[in-house]
Design a protein around this nucleic acid. Structure first.
Length: 483
DNA sequence: CTGGGGATGGGGCCC
DNA sequence: CGGGCCCCATCCCCA
């Protein structure tokens, strides 16, 4: 274990009997003493665990029994903190916990980390360890796994700086515990190295106040849990959000951060459209977009075939199978729901609106957006909120936005100031062109039309002046299929 | 400053 | 398993 003592924060004491003018002076660094003490204490506890001395807690993982000390588990894991402090077993002499969400091998890695500060990560176990750490609410382990994955993903763009990379194929070991802060700084430096392709976070804004998924921030323990081992001040939710942010590019429409559109302001889409006219920037954006897409694909590729099946039990003691998100504590009943949920971590927005270039994670959101914003489907006067029909009102255009106004309200406002919809009514079908491989183009309710992603330049024209005959582009996301 | 409404995003679940 | 609907939470804008 290597420790770089922070002399700025530690105190120095002169040895007894030595005056200030005596040379050479001997100084005792309290930081060194602390580290040595913590290290030996941890070793001692680990020995006790291996000899099953004073173990007062049993953990059953897929049938395999592990003995440990409840105070150590309490200090290291938010999950155990909850279990031991609130559970009915908390006051009893023997505490038992059963897990089916991860393998005994994974728990060994976790347990070894708790008792030694050594985290043995490899490309084969990193996802499961991260998943288990997420379940056990161990922020620091999540951070290490995150950095491990991130480092692995950075390989392609850091070939020229290969000595700073951690190969996916090689097993690495992270130090933690008392040296956590130092290693974190080192990792931070590694990430912020000159070869990094990520833009400085300060250069682009993001809406941190808005939770990306509903459960985030709802778990008070997850937010408040801080391991007894030195952990980063950020919550796992923040970390994951940051991770998702790292996979996103402010100029990357495919990976638009949720909420960032609004932060960008009303001129956001226009600015982006104008940027597209600049050819070099066009290439940069396209390049960044490709890189991010590859990163997301690699991220997906690292996921295990089964993301997690949790053994919750219903009233009849039958297990309820659930799929666990590898990036957070969220679980879902269906794999398809998990796939949908993963988009809030990867930042994928495969459904762009061709009218305003805004992208959505779901087709239904795109459709809802299109119908309300660009099609004026709501039969309500925007001004007086009264019900309007095609006879009692008209569709009004405002840029790419369309809404209805009743005849009275239109007359109140100067008619010259209101650009009337050339098609007059959104009832004229169908303004929205949808389609899957062009097969359903003749659909009476809606016709879909496929447009290549490369047609963005054409989209810009649409974004500028179209409002009616819009093409909703559906990007093939089959690549993100979880195997 | 505040409350209401619109827009957006995410989860559950039915078909 | 995907599509779609419903519901709810959150944020932002505006009166």
């Amino acid at each position: 274990m290597e420790m770089v003592a922070d002399l700025g924060a530690s105190r120095l004491y002169r040895a007894p009997g030595e005056s200030s003018h005596q040379q050479p002076q001997r100084w005792f660094n309290t930081a060194d003493i602390t580290v040595a003490h913590q290290s030996s204490l941890l070793k001692q506890l680990n020995q006790q665990r291996r000899q099953e001395l004073f173990c007062d807690c049993s953990v059953l993982v897929e049938g395999q029994l592990f003995r440990a000390h409840r105070n150590v588990l309490f200090a290291s894991s938010g999950y155990f903190r909850m279990l031991l402090s609130q559970g009915p077993d908390g006051l009893s002499d023997s505490v038992n916990a059963t897990f089916d969400t991860f393998s005994p091998e994974t728990f060994i890695v976790i347990l070894d980390f708790i008792y030694s500060g050594q985290l043995d990560l490899s490309s084969h176990n990193v996802i499961e360890v991260m998943s288990a750490a997420s379940y056990l609410q161990m922020n620091n382990v999540i951070n290490y796994c995150k950095n491990f994955i991130k480092s692995s993903l950075d390989i392609s763009v850091k070939d020229e700086d290969s000595d700073r990379c951690i190969s996916l194929s090689e097993t690495c070991s992270f130090n933690s515990g008392v040296v956590d802060e130092t290693s974190e700084q080192q990792q931070q430096q590694q990430q912020q190295g000159p070869s990094s392709v990520s833009p400085p976070p300060a250069l682009w804004t993001r809406d941190n106040s808005r939770s990306q998924c509903g459960f985030m921030g709802k778990d008070p323990d997850q937010e408040s849990s801080s391991s007894a081992l030195k952990t980063s001040p950020s919550s796992p939710a923040d970390d994951l959000k940051a991770e998702a942010d790292d996979l996103q590019d402010p100029q990357d429409p495919l990976y638009t951060l949720p909420g960032s559109e609004r932060r960008r302001g009303k001129g956001g889409t226009k600015r982006r459209a104008s940027n597209r006219s600049n050819q070099p920037e066009d290439l940069d954006i396209e390049e960044a977009r490709t890189q991010k897409a590859e990163k997301a694909e690699e991220l997906y590729a690292t996921l295990p075939p089964i993301l997690g099946v949790i053994g919750h039990f219903n009233r009849d003691s039958n297990p309820i199978m659930r799929f666990k998100c590898p990036f957070c504590t969220h679980t879902v009943k269906r794999k398809a729901d998990l796939k949908r949920h993963l988009r809030c971590h990867t930042g994928e927005r495969p459904y762009p609106c061709q009218a305003c270039n805004k992208r959505f994670t779901r087709l239904e959101h795109l459709r809802s957006h299109f119908e309300t914003i660009h099609q004026a489907r709501k039969l309500v006067c925007r001004k007086c909120k009264c019900q309007v029909t095609d006879e009692t009102g008209h569709v009004v255009c405002e840029g790419t936005r369309r809404y209805r106004m009743c005849t009275a309200c239109i007359q109140e406002v100067d008619c010259d100031e209101i650009p009337m919809d050339s098609l007059d009514s959104a009832s004229e079908e169908p303004a929205l062109l949808l389609g899957v491989d062009g097969e359903e183009e003749g659909d009476s309710k809606r016709s879909w039309m496929v447009a290549d992603d490369d047609d963005d330049d054409d989209n810009d024209d649409l974004a500028e002046d179209s409002g009616a005959d819009l093409i909703i582009q559906q990007v093939d996301d089959s690549d993100e299929e979880l195997q």
